[in-house]
Amino acid sequence: MKESVRELMQRFNLEPLENNLFRGQSEANGQRSIFGGLVAGQALLAASMTVPEDRPVHSLHAYFLRPGDIRRPVIYDVDRIRDGRSFTTRRVNAIQHGRPIFSLSTSFQVEEEGARHQTPMPEVPAPEELESDESARLAMAERIPKQFRDDFLRERPLTFRPVTPRNVFEPESREPLKQFWFKVADQVEADRMTHRALLAYCSDFGFMGTAMQPHGMTFWQGNMQCASLDHAMWFYDDFRIDDWLLYHCESPGAAGARGLTFGHIYRRDGVLVASVAQEGLMRLRPGEEPV
């Protein structure tokens, strides 16, 4: 197993501390705060550890409250709100330095049959026909400031294949639509719930940038302040996180320095496995020039 994937799986091996209390390790990712998808995935996994295995998660709704400290682990406090005959509900607070940094509500359901329909998967090239993000990162490495270059080029646990690549250093204005294939970069031996927690982790990558595209904005601008504000997911079908999945992202609007994005995640066979929604902060700092 690749070292980066091994480290990722260690972060999704939560430590039980007490009844309803769990500890997860953070990661040094080149950012000043913990990646939001990691906290979302760990919080979802912590909630599932208080739920019977025959009740898979079907939805989550969360708010990012404070930046997370990458130097400290995160404590997950699970509140067992309801255990019904069909549905189980949990609330989770992610805590650092005695204060919540993230709050999640999530629901689990006994599996049952019912009506089915879905939005068809868009017609896009197969991942094997597209350039990997790793090749693109290597091509632009010289443009990364030296203090960030090692983190930018480090081996990553995920691999991406964008359908329409974008040069983040010369961003042209384009429609608020982004499509890319992704997967964990090595084989994952884990239960179904861990695969879903890992999908929550993956769902925060490259997502908010969709709303920035019409404005020629990128995360690399020195005068740009970005942060995930809230996040929601709905799960429909099983999948493997180490098989290619297509992320189709669209932004219906932006206002008040906030951008809203919706997404659908498909298996290679066209089955819709999850839908995602997120609003993010995309604030240009006044008086500062982009770098």
Rank of each mutant, 00 (worst) to 15 (best):
D77I: 05
W220I: 15
E142C: 00
D54N: 14
S48W: 10
E18T: 02
R72A: 14
A46P: 11
Q278Y: 01
L284G: 03
T89Y: 04
T210R: 05
G37F: 12
N93C: 02
L153F: 00
R143Q: 11
G287S: 09
Q31K: 05
R85M: 00
G41T: 09
V271H: 15
L245V: 01
Q225F: 10
S59P: 05
A115M: 10
V92I: 10
A254Q: 13
Q225V: 13
Q10S: 09
E15M: 02
I241P: 09
F64E: 03
V188K: 12
L138R: 14
L246G: 04
G263C: 06
R82W: 06
A141I: 05
L158T: 02
R71K: 15
P125R: 09
L260F: 11
E142L: 01
R85C: 01
R196Y: 03
D54F: 11
C249D: 03
T210Y: 00
Q179K: 10
E170R: 14
T106N: 08
Q109V: 04
Y63H: 08
A190N: 01
R90L: 02
L284F: 00
E288V: 03
A274H: 10
G24R: 09
H264P: 13
L138E: 10
R240H: 13
V51I: 07
P145V: 05
I95W: 06
G263Y: 06
S4I: 01
L45T: 07
T50H: 06
Q179F: 00
G280Q: 07
F12Y: 00
S86E: 05
A190Q: 03
Y76D: 00
L38C: 01
R267D: 12
F262W: 08
V57I: 14
L284V: 15
V271Q: 15
P171L: 02
L245W: 05
Y236P: 13
H248N: 14
V57P: 12
Q31T: 07
Y266C: 02
S135I: 08
E134A: 08
G280N: 09
A254W: 02
Q221L: 13
N19L: 08
L272G: 09
G36R: 15
R143M: 09
A274M: 10
L65N: 01
V57H: 12
S251V: 04
